[in-house]
Amino acid sequence: MYRILVINPGSTSTKLAIYEDENLVSKDTVRHTSEELSPFKHIADQYEFRKEVIKNFLEKSGFPLSSFSAIIGRGGLLRPIPGGIYEVNELMKEELRQGKFGEHASNLGALIASELASDVGIPAYIADPVVVDELDDLARFSGHPDFERKSIFHALNQKAVARAVAEQMGKKYDEVNLIVVHMGGGISIGAHRRGKVVDVNNALDGDGPFTPERSGTLPMTQIIDLAYSGKITYDEMKKRIKGNGGLVAYLKTNDALEVQRKVEEGDEYATLIYKAMGLQISKWIGKMAAALSFQVDGIVLTGGLAYDKDYMVKWLTEHNQYIAPIYVIPGGDEEKALAEAALRALRGNEKVKKYPPKEVNNA
């Protein structure tokens, strides 16, 4: 039996879980107020604060560190790397401490996992961080050499549900072609070709369908006109793209459940906007089908919006069932996905990679 500690730091919370093989033993989400986090100028400064939260969780759970087989943290903002499981090493930790490729609370996952694991001589891992980059060379071209398409998406959940659907099919992940649609506050739609995400929209920086709070791909000339109009600041412009876009801009809320209630009550405008978001998602599913030469074994709907079977799932099924069978795996259990990755490493079912892999040279 393998006992695994999962550490998943988010912007305003620390999610923790203990698994024994595939079985969840204990789980907690510790919320952090803005007052608690305000003294920390940089994400790395939160290190001791977050570590204390984790130690308290372990004390309450009754499991000493020495009883664990491995610790896995949510992967942070690193250089672009292929998907997989990585053992935390000194270079990875140094880049995360420096915030070399960006600052995010998830950077702390590997750092804390490594320190706790080293105290008891067990491995520390990360798996499938948001910077997973397996794009085909052709998918990198944007249309102008000054701009390259980047791979930033919900890699951990996308790959976890892709493996689960492949298993349902009686196949391995690297034997199938899937389109995975993660629908949350951000929406990423990936073309999975035999175990690699060969094309995906950049869910962070304004690429793809509009979402509960992001504008997605916008008409470029209109963006340029607004940016140079003198009526809007740089920060306000960024907020139009991410934070104040999508459902927030149209309906003044990023709560999809509230929008669904409006639809149920017969609000025609809310229904129009919600359907428009569904249509944009369908268009991107079509793009990813083209990236797979329309050889698609299945379309997987996941993330929070996949719970909406009466509207969003129904609409997407109606639009896309002609491409491939639809599979629905709601939510996005990152702790479970991380525990499964650590278990594959411990059992020798997947080779653990060294950071950075030799084939990546983008320091």
Rank of each mutant, 00 (worst) to 15 (best):
G75L: 09
I179R: 00
A155I: 03
E94A: 14
A290W: 04
L65T: 10
R74P: 08
L257H: 06
I189V: 13
E103V: 08
H144F: 09
P39Q: 04
L301G: 07
Y2S: 13
E213Y: 10
N157C: 11
D205Q: 09
Q98D: 11
E52S: 14
K231C: 10
E236T: 02
V180W: 03
A166P: 11
Y2H: 14
T29P: 01
A256T: 09
D333G: 06
V360K: 02
G245F: 08
K275C: 05
L272E: 15
K287W: 07
I126C: 02
E59G: 00
L251E: 03
K100L: 14
L292K: 00
M277L: 12
W315G: 07
A113K: 05
Y307A: 11
G170Q: 02
A17R: 02
Q98P: 00
K238H: 01
Y322W: 15
V360T: 08
S293Y: 07
K262F: 08
M183Y: 02
N244W: 13
N8L: 04
L279Q: 13
H32T: 04
N349G: 01
R50T: 06
I85W: 01
H192I: 10
G245N: 07
H192W: 01
D128P: 05
E52T: 15
S61T: 13
K262S: 13
K242A: 15
N23W: 03
N202V: 07
E213L: 14
Q260T: 12
E90P: 06
E359G: 04
A290T: 11
V248A: 00
L5V: 12
E20S: 13
I224S: 12
D207R: 05
V198C: 11
V161Q: 08
T12F: 14
A191E: 00
N244I: 05
V200T: 06
T271V: 00
K239N: 13
R50Y: 12
S66N: 13
K336F: 08
Q260K: 15
K238Q: 11
P64E: 14
Y173N: 06
L96T: 08
V131H: 04
I323L: 15
T211Q: 09
R74H: 12
L77I: 07
A127Y: 04
G303V: 04
P9L: 08
M92D: 02
M312D: 03
V132T: 07
E318K: 11
A162P: 03
K55A: 10
G83M: 00
G216Y: 06
K196Q: 07
K275Y: 11
R140E: 10
W284K: 00
L135P: 05
K287Q: 14
N361L: 12
I81A: 11
D255M: 09
L78S: 02
H104D: 09
V313R: 11
P80G: 10
F101Y: 15
